[in-house]
C-alpha cells in the first residue's frame, strides 16, 4: 500500500520535471526582445479599461455551492458502492432515501431558479 503511494511520489517529481525542463530549454534558446507594446495586456482592438480583478457575478457562487453538495454526496456514496455486494437490503433502501433527498435538493434549487444562467 505504502509502496504504491511511493510510486505516485516518484511520478510527481518526474511529472514536474518535464515542464520545468521544457521551460528551461525554451528559456535558453528563445529570443528575448521585450517592448512595452508587446508586454501590454492583450485586447481586441479596444484597449482594456479599469481593474480586471473585480468582484464578479454571484451566479457562479451558487453553482459552486451546488457542486459542493453533490461532491460530498459522492464522497459518501463511493464507500457504499464498494461494499455494495455485501450489504443487506436495508442499506440499499437507506442509500435510496439518501439519493432521493439529494434529488429533492436538486429539484428545490431548480425551482428556486438557482440553475438559471442570467
Amino acid at each position: 500500500m505504502l509502496s504504491e503511494f511511493a510510486f505516485v511520489g516518484v511520478l510527481v517529481i518526474f511529472a514536474t520535471l518535464l515542464p520545468v525542463a521544457g521551460l528551461a530549454v525554451a528559456w535558453l534558446i528563445r529570443p528575448k526582445k521585450p517592448n512595452p507594446i508587446k508586454q501590454s495586456t492583450y485586447e481586441c482592438g479596444i484597449e482594456a479599461r479599469g481593474e480586471t480583478w473585480v468582484q464578479f457575478r454571484a451566479c457562479y457562487y451558487i453553482f459552486a455551492l451546488l457542486f459542493v453538495v453533490f461532491d460530498v454526496e459522492a464522497a459518501f456514496l463511493l464507500p457504499w458502492a464498494v461494499a455494495y455486494q455485501q450489504l443487506a437490503l436495508y442499506a440499499v433502501i437507506e442509500a435510496i432515501i439518501f439519493v432521493a433527498i439529494l434529488a429533492y435538493a436538486l429539484i428545490y434549487a431548480w425551482r428556486k431558479g438557482a440553475l438559471r444562467w442570467i
Partner: peptide, 22 residues
C-alpha cells in the same frame, strides 16, 4: 514552440502565471 519568444504581460502575477502551465 521552443524557439518562440515568451511574452509575459507586465501586469501579470508572474509566479502564478509561470506555475499554471507546469
Amino acid at each position: 514552440m521552443l524557439t518562440k519568444e515568451d511574452v509575459t504581460p507586465v501586469c501579470a502575477d508572474r509566479v502564478v502565471f509561470n506555475l499554471a502551465p507546469i
